[in-house]
Simulated scan of single mutants.
Amino acid sequence: MKYLILLLIVLVGIWWIRQQRKPKPPSDKPKDPLEMVACVHCGTHVPENDATKGTKGAYCSQAHRETHEG
């Protein structure tokens, strides 16, 4: 009987250790995907909130906006 109790304690200990090692799921939900826009100058796609806005469209950088718009 004492071996059965000892085996049960060992199995519970192994189960508890395995539960502690599992990675925790991320707590926050993934955000909505960002809208991608193409740079008018080079065609590179960048997220809309990172794009530089110009009079002729969206650009991937300030340098491309200056080059394309003059």
Results as ranks from 00 to 15, higher is better:
Val37Gly: 01
Cys39Pro: 11
Ala58Lys: 07
Met36Asp: 09
Ala58Glu: 11
Met1Pro: 14
Val46Thr: 02
Tyr59Asn: 05
Met1Lys: 14
Gln20Ile: 05
Ser27Glu: 12
Asn49Ala: 04
Ser27Cys: 06
Tyr3Gly: 12
Trp16His: 15
Thr55Tyr: 07
Leu6Lys: 13
Gln19Phe: 01
Ser27Leu: 07
Lys29Gln: 14
Pro25Glu: 08
Trp16Arg: 14
Ile17Lys: 12
Thr52Val: 11
Val10Ser: 10
Val40Pro: 02
Ala63Gln: 06
Arg65His: 12
Tyr59Arg: 00
Val12Lys: 09
Pro23Arg: 02
Glu69Trp: 01
Val40Asp: 05
Glu69Phe: 02
Tyr59Met: 05
Ile5His: 11
Lys29Ser: 13
Gly43Arg: 07
Pro33Leu: 08
Trp15Gln: 12
Gly54Ile: 00
Pro33Gly: 00
Ala58Ile: 08
Ser27Met: 08
Tyr3Glu: 14
Gln62Asn: 05
His41Ile: 03
Lys56Gln: 07
Leu6Val: 15
His68Asn: 10
Ala51Gln: 07
Cys60Glu: 14
Ala51His: 06
Leu8Gln: 02
Lys53Cys: 05
Glu66Gln: 15
Asp28Ala: 13
Ser61Gln: 03
Lys53Gly: 08
Lys29Tyr: 12
Ala58Met: 06
Asp28Met: 11
Ala63Phe: 08
Met36Arg: 03
Lys53His: 13
Ser27Ile: 12
Lys24Gln: 05
Ala63Lys: 05
Ala58Gly: 05
Lys22Thr: 11
His64Gln: 10
Gly43Phe: 01
Leu7Asn: 11
Ser27Tyr: 10
Thr67Ile: 08
